[in-house]
Design a protein around this nucleic acid. Structure first.
Length: 271
DNA sequence: CACGGATCCTGATGGC
DNA sequence: TGCCATCAGGATCCGT
């Protein structure tokens, strides 16, 4: 489910509320993508200092070490008053003095991993190859252009890979490419500088807008307070195959790229 | 070594 | 409580 906007919206919905909480207990459900990497009971007694985000990871800073949370395709986090017994798809619960943090993830592509610190091998295994943050100052046009020049793959897949810029998933890749007027199949290395510049702007714009709208709720995403997002209502192409393009009226098309659906307007988006 | 495909898992949906 | 195929917001691993 979650791309950068959904992860950031999740973070914003509980970071302040959990700060300073004392961990009282940890309960695990079925195995997630990776093992926790420590004895769950070792976390007891520690305080949660704050919550950061890196790409699509949430970083829960503890007094000693940190927890890296990834929501995979179907994960969502809740934090609040004791929600009662864990349900079928609740696979990680952190009981704290200020409420219960819970990861619900039906498909279990998500993960919760402990690392002694951000630069440890365990953390770097997950974070080490990530590209720059699209909403931060490090997302520099010049660097972006240079990076694209080195990639021969279709631009959609370069965005999804997250090694150039992080956080752009299947929805926002299609949306950003629409905004930039670029066909998703265009090879990254073939993009002219002006077109790469349009994409650079489009990526920032679409992600920032999606955060403002609370993310996209396609079926079941909600933030840590249980609230849905609304960006999907203004998506230009994602999920709109067969419908008229909002700009030119042409029929929005869908293709498969790397086992994922891609949506685009054949007139607004040039190869 | 960059790229494309297979893969992990569960649930929803739609055709027959 | 029908069965089967297809699809779903991610990212790693593996063969070429």
């Amino acid at each position: 489910m979650p791309e950068l906007p959904e992860v950031e919206v999740t973070r914003l919905s509980f970071a302040q509320r959990i700060a300073g909480a004392r961990i009282e207990g940890v309960e695990m459900g079925k195995p997630l993508r990776w093992p926790l990497g420590c004895d769950p009971q070792d976390l007891r007694g520690q305080r949660v200092l704050g919550v950061r985000r890196r790409g699509k990871y949430l970083l829960l800073d503890l007094e000693r070490g940190l927890l890296l949370l990834h929501l995979g395709m179907s994960g969502s986090v809740t934090f609040g008053a004791d929600p009662g017994p864990a349900g079928k798809h609740d696979h990680f619960s952190l009981r704290t003095s200020l409420g219960v943090l819970r990861l619900n993830d039906p498909r279990r592509f998500g993960a919760v991993v402990f690392a002694a610190d951000e630069h440890s091998p365990e953390a770097q295994k997950l974070l080490g190859k990530l590209g720059v943050e699209p909403l931060g100052d490090d997302f520099v046009l010049e660097d972006f252009c240079k990076a694209l020049k080195k990639r021969n793959a279709p631009i959609k897949q370069v965005l999804l890979a997250g090694e150039t810029v992080v956080g752009v998933g299947n929805i926002y890749a299609s949306e950003a490419l629409f905004l930039a007027g670029i066909r998703p199949t265009t090879r990254a290395s073939r993009l002219s500088r002006p077109r790469a510049a349009r994409l650079h702007t489009a990526v920032r714009q679409v992600l920032a807008r999606a955060v403002e709208k609370g993310g996209s709720t396609l079926r079941d995403f909600s933030n840590a307070q249980g609230e849905s997002g609304h960006f999907q209502l203004e998506a230009a192409v994602y999920g709109r195959a067969g419908l008229p393009c909002r700009v030119c009226g042409s029929v929005v098309r869908t293709i498969r790229q790397g086992q994922r659906s891609t949506f685009f307007c054949p007139v607004c988006q040039k190869p």
